[in-house]
């Protein structure tokens, strides 16, 4: 309760957050309004050039591709994660089943991406498998396209979605499903109209866990994408490293931060009324 002790405990955290989080974010904000230096860095001169570049056709394209990849892979991941978490929640003694889903998630991301390169590449596992099964055409390049980026994102963020969904479905009272069926609902109907509304909070969390990191993804499109499937993260990296345009990189970072903030706000808005009532009121 003593104020002084609380301040002492939290002082290192406060200092670290201010120096290495707040100040850098403020600098990114300021940089986006400055002119570009010739060899990286900035010239301290007010300029809206970076923001006007955000209204170019090429930036619009990258944003659209990013959004499309993020939406598509989030939906696909959710469609897989929902039945998986449902099965986990309905199974007793599921420690092993849960571990099977979590273990791949702890393996280094770069190794997982590399494994997909080994599978999808022109000389990769899938092509050899197809040849083995009797395919006699030219080897197919499954890599370096839009769909490769989507598949690897689905692969990467599946565990992120399964865990929050599972912990939510686990708390759901499955007796309600039987009640709904007794009242004439089909099995699928009871799941969709009784269970889904009750695990809304978990679904929103799961979507956020997959959507926001995918929006800011950099390594995956860099390694398995092509120039046509480059995302906002690649634009930031390109402007930092190759084009030496730090104001533009800052402006794109700012856009990405705003998108994430928007997602978080939607999350808190939807979760304002926590699903405490197990039974949804009749409409």
């Amino acid at each position: 309760m003593k104020g002084r002790a609380g301040v002492l405990y939290t002082l290192p955290l406060m200092l670290w957050s201010c120096i290495f989080f707040i100040i850098p974010i403020i600098i990114v904000f300021i940089y986006s309004f400055l002119a570009k230096g010739l060899y990286g860095g900035v010239v301290w001169q007010f300029s809206l050039k970076a923001f006007s570049a955000l209204f170019s056709w090429s930036f619009f394209r990258v944003s659209l591709v990013t959004l499309l990849i993020a939406v598509l892979s989030t939906i696909l991941t959710l469609l897989i994660a929902l039945p998986v978490s449902y099965y986990l929640a309905r199974t007793k003694n599921n420690t092993l089943l849960l571990a099977l889903v979590v273990i791949p998630f702890w393996v280094n991301l770069l190794l997982r991406v590399y494994a997909w390169i080994a599978i999808l590449g022109r000389e990769g596992f899938l092509n050899h498998l197809m040849t083995f099964l009797g395919y006699r055409g030219e080897p197919v390049q499954f890599l370096f396209n839009f769909w490769a980026v989507v598949i690897v994102h689905v692969y990467t963020y599946l565990p992120y979605m399964i865990l929050p969904l599972y912990s939510n479905i686990e708390k759901f009272d499955f007796g309600l499903l039987e009640a709904a069926r007794d009242l004439g609902a089909t099995h699928m109907g009871s799941l969709v109209r009784v269970m889904l509304p009750n695990i809304k909070g978990g679904i929103v969390t799961a979507i956020l866990f997959a959507f926001i990191p995918t929006m800011g993804s950099y390594a995956i499109p860099d390694l398995v994408g092509s120039t046509n499937s480059h995302m906002l993260g690649n634009s930031i990296a390109y402007n930092i490293r190759t084009a030496n345009n730090w104001p533009l990189a800052s402006a794109i970072s700012l856009v990405l931060t705003l998108i994430s903030a928007l997602g978080i706000m939607i999350y808190f808005f939807l979760n304002r009324k926590p699903a405490r009532h197990k039974v949804r009121e009749a409409p």
Binding site: G3, G6, V7, T10, L13, M14, S17, C18, F20, F21, I22, I23, P24, I25, I27, V28, Y31, L208, I212, P213, M215, G216, S217, Y218, G233, I236, A237, I240, W246, A249, S250, S253, L256, T257, S260, G263, I264
Partner: peptide
């Protein structure tokens, strides 16, 4: 303590931002 609410907000926001933002802002800093 006085700045508790502020600290709670500030220390959890990075959790929700894409990693690349942390990387770029620290690099520039």
């Amino acid at each position: 303590f006085s700045y508790k609410k502020f600290l709670q907000g500030v220390s959890f926001v990075p959790l929700l931002l894409p990693e690349i933002i942390t990387g770029v802002s620290l690099l520039i800093f």
